[in-house]
Structure formats: structure tokens, C-alpha cells
């Protein structure tokens, strides 16, 4: 019993550390400009003069006390981020899962695993210029499909490797039995194997979604105005009058955390099973 309490205390301490920076951001989101940095006032944890104006500003573009009105509100970048992250995640998960199954079962594709690993390890900055030129040639700059496609490709290695490790652990006998029962090979994959690994797919999808959702660099180089995403949009929250609008950025940071959290909660029951990546058998 003392052990349980001791462990709980230690874990609570960790949770507090995890939450402190987030709570600093959360209180910052409710602070007026004068309380953002020590250039104007001594800092306090809680806002002395709490206000919704940071949220009003990012959602409507205009707020009392801010000289410059925002050219764009957060709505469209939010939509752009959601759309491209979701489609990118779908591309990665569908293609990666299919390929992982193929490689796991039939060893086709040669060294595709290594190639995908290289693709992921490679620093994107070392290759973004050619990709930008290629995207421009194909007319995919500043389009939702162009951004979704690159997101799908750069996260493909994750879904492949995570899913492959899971399929590797799954005995083939189940599928073989199904085929003997009269299934085609595809039906065995689609109706028998996939439902077993659905939790792995879900947790893989969450992880990939977070990666796509957080991307700053790719969106910076492959968009122009229509499809800039939340992390790129955040840079717009600075003005000549007040410099970095930390309060508005904090508000945006809170807003940006919502989709991953919702997704995380909705698939939480899969997380514990899923993220073992199937590396172990029960």
C-alpha cells in the first residue's frame, strides 16, 4: 500500500512537470499584451487582468487594443491543417499497411524496408529544394492534394515499419485456415487479418497524424497562401507594433492541441495494445 502511494506521488510529480509548461501556455492565452514579457511588466503565473481577447483576435482577426487587424483568421488554416493531415495520414496508413503485409508475408519488394527507413532518417532540409521544384513543375504548390501527398509520403515509412513489426508477429496459420475454408487471399487479408490489427492501425494513425499536424517546414515551402497550415500561420501572429503576439500564439497553441487530443482520446482504448508495434506475442 505504501508502495502504491509512493508510486502515485512520483507519477503525480511527473504529471505536474508535464503540465507546467502547458499551463503556462494556457494562462498566457488569457493575458493581455502588457503581461506577455518582462519588457513591460513583472511576470505572474495567473493573468492579472484575464481576457478572451487573444482568442477573439485569432478567430475574428480584430480586437480592441491591437492596432493591426489580422489579414487572415485561424479558421481556414485550421481547416487546411485538418484536411491535409487527415488525407496524408490516410495515404500513409493505407499504403504502408498494405505494403507491410506484403513484405511480411511474401518477402516481396526487395530492400523496400531499407529504402523507406532512409527516406525517414534523411533530414528533409537536405532535399526540400528539389521537392519544391518538382512540386512547382507538377503544379502542386499551394494545393491541398500536393501537401497531403507529401505528408503521406514522408510518414509512409512509419506506418510501414510499425505495421510490419505487427504483421510479423501474427501467425500465418489463421489466414491459411481461412483460405482453406474458401476465402481468396485478399479476403483473408481484408476480413481476417486486418480486424486483428485494427488497434495497431489506430495507434499508428494517431502517431502519424501528430507528425503531419506538427509539420512546419514542408508547409512553409510547399504552400503560398491558400493552404498554409497552423504552424505556418502561427508566424503571422506578430506585428510591428507588438512583435511576437505571445498571447495569440498561446491561444493558437491551445487550439492546435485539441485535434490530436480528441483523436487520442477517441482511440485511447487501442493505444496500450497498439503501440507495442506487435513486437511481442502474448
Amino acid at each position: 500500500m505504501t508502495g502504491l502511494i509512493l508510486r502515485t506521488v512520483v507519477v503525480a510529480l511527473f504529471a505536474a512537470i508535464a503540465l507546467l509548461p502547458i499551463s503556462w501556455m494556457a494562462t498566457m492565452a488569457f493575458k493581455p499584451p502588457a503581461e506577455w514579457t518582462s519588457a513591460t511588466a513583472e511576470l505572474t503565473f495567473l493573468p492579472k487582468d484575464p481576457t478572451w481577447s487573444n482568442f477573439v483576435y485569432v478567430f475574428t482577426g480584430e480586437v480592441e487594443g491591437q492596432i493591426v487587424s489580422l489579414d487572415r483568421t485561424v479558421w481556414w488554416p485550421l481547416f487546411a491543417s485538418l484536411l491535409t493531415s487527415v488525407i496524408g495520414t490516410l495515404i500513409a496508413v493505407v499504403a504502408g499497411t498494405a505494403a507491410a503485409y506484403a513484405v511480411s508475408r511474401e518477402k516481396v519488394g526487395g530492400s523496400i524496408g531499407l529504402s523507406l527507413l532512409q527516406l525517414r532518417i534523411f533530414p528533409p532540409l537536405a532535399v526540400m529544394i528539389p521537392v519544391m521544384i518538382m512540386w512547382a513543375f507538377l503544379g502542386m504548390i499551394d494545393t491541398w492534394w500536393g501537401l497531403s501527398l507529401i505528408y503521406g509520403i514522408v510518414t509512409l515509412p512509419f506506418s510501414f515499419w510499425l505495421m510490419k513489426s505487427y504483421f510479423d508477429e501474427l501467425p500465418r496459420e489463421i489466414e491459411e485456415a481461412a483460405i482453406v475454408e474458401g476465402c481468396t487471399a485478399f479476403e483473408a487479408f481484408y476480413q481476417i487479418t486486418l480486424p486483428i490489427v485494427v488497434s495497431a492501425v489506430a495507434s499508428t494513425a494517431l502517431f502519424i497524424f501528430i507528425l503531419n499536424w506538427s509539420d512546419y517546414l514542408i508547409a512553409l515551402l510547399l504552400t503560398r497562401k491558400e493552404w498554409t497550415t497552423i504552424p505556418v500561420y502561427m508566424n503571422a501572429l506578430a506585428t510591428a507594433a507588438s512583435g511576437q503576439l505571445y498571447g495569440a500564439k498561446a491561444a493558437l497553441g491551445l487550439i492546435a492541441a485539441i485535434p490530436p487530443i480528441i483523436l487520442g482520446i477517441s482511440i485511447q482504448r487501442f493505444l496500450v495494445q497498439g503501440l507495442t508495434f506487435g513486437a511481442l506475442k502474448q
Binding site: T37, A39, T40, A238, A240, A241, S242, G243, Q244
Partner: peptide
């Protein structure tokens, strides 16, 4: 600090 904190100062 950037120019903005200079302004604030």
C-alpha cells in the same frame, strides 16, 4: 529581444 521588446522597454 527583437525590436518589439525594445519598443516595450
Amino acid at each position: 529581444w527583437t525590436f518589439a521588446e525594445g519598443y516595450s522597454g
